[in-house]
């Protein structure tokens, strides 16, 4: 069995960490894993993506268009940008909160994110909308958006892991004082 996972968003949203956590969980389950991501733009507000592949007989970490089992979009426009990678019948889990690029601020562009969410709902059968802003407000930390998104993706059953599996790995990687917060975020289902 192979799973192709695409995580995308904007630098600073914790995408690379999310990818690492899935990879570490795969390692725990003796599933071969490869990944590839944008490097170095994290602080610079650029688009960030991470390709993850789990399973046997994988040659390279990137996968072609129309082969992703799931796209976890941390930002509406970024999910749309990567949508050509989704396979027919694939799953999209997307944060509804848009992030304005500096260029939009300069040109006064009217990007709101809603046009992207409408597009996703028109063009993808399986879309889960996650109100990431509401989630981080309720949980009380902007740093756990990635756990909220990952939790929503895992609950959807497309990844070969349960929330418990991810939580077990998370407990081994984050500092003890942050475990409870991250668990809450993983299990958030607002």
């Amino acid at each position: 069995m192979q799973s192709n996972i695409l995580i995308c968003g904007v630098g600073g949203q914790g995408i690379v960490l999310t990818s690492k956590l899935i990879a570490a969980t795969a390692m725990e389950h003796d599933i071969p894993v490869m990944s590839a991501e944008t490097i170095g733009m994290a602080q610079k507000g650029g688009s960030v993506f991470s390709f993850l592949r789990l399973g046997d007989d994988i040659y390279c970490p990137m996968f072609p268009e129309k082969t992703a089992d799931i796209i976890i979009g941390f930002e509406p426009a970024e999910a749309v940008r990567m949508l050509p990678y989704l396979k027919d019948g694939g799953q999209v889990v997307v944060n509804t909160h848009p992030i304005m690029p500096v260029t939009a601020t300069l040109s006064g562009s009217d990007y709101t994110g809603n046009e992207m969410l409408d597009y996703l709902q028109r063009n993808v059968k399986n879309v889960v909308l996650v109100d990431g802003n509401k989630a981080i407000e309720e949980i009380g930390s902007p740093k756990v958006l990635n756990m909220v998104m990952l939790g929503a993706a895992v609950r959807n059953g497309v990844l070969p892991f349960s929330v418990d599996d991810i939580e077990d790995t998370m407990k081994k990687t984050v500092k003890p004082q942050f475990i409870e917060l991250n668990s809450k975020a993983l299990r958030y289902n607002g």
């Binding site: 507000g45 749309v80 940008r81 050509p84 990007y111 597009y119 063009n123």
Partner: peptide, 21 residues
């Protein structure tokens, strides 16, 4: 040839060129 992807043209996507932090 791999089939071209047929999809509705997406709305104009915001450009995110790298900028000074």
């Amino acid at each position: 040839k791999p089939a071209a992807i047929e999809a509705e043209t997406p709305p104009a996507l915001p450009v995110r060129p790298p900028v000074l932090c």
